[in-house]
């Protein structure tokens, strides 16, 4: 999960530690509709998962995003 949050912080160009599992996507600076494609590319590259677009749109928190690539805590 820690590594996932680091990948996410890099993607949204925020300092390491910005994302935590509990952070909601609405709170997350740098996360918006334009980030979705970058997230899907990162998920595929780092985790070998083609994320479902429908499930991505349902995600509310960083933990939800992590679950999409198979990381559950």
């Amino acid at each position: 999960m820690k590594e996932f949050c680091q990948h996410l912080d890099r993607l949204i160009e925020q300092p390491t530690g910005t994302s935590t599992p509990e952070t909601t996507l609405l709170q997350l600076a740098g996360w918006d509709s334009m980030t979705a494609m970058g997230f899907m590319a990162m998920a595929d590259r780092q985790y070998g998962v083609v994320v479902s677009a429908v499930r991505l749109m349902d995600a509310k928190t960083v933990a939800d995003l992590a679950a999409l690539v198979g990381i559950v805590e």
Partner: peptide
């Protein structure tokens, strides 16, 4: 256009 859906489709 649902860009995320396009991405999912194209990646596969």
């Amino acid at each position: 256009m649902n860009g995320a859906a396009v991405f999912e489709f194209a990646a596969a």
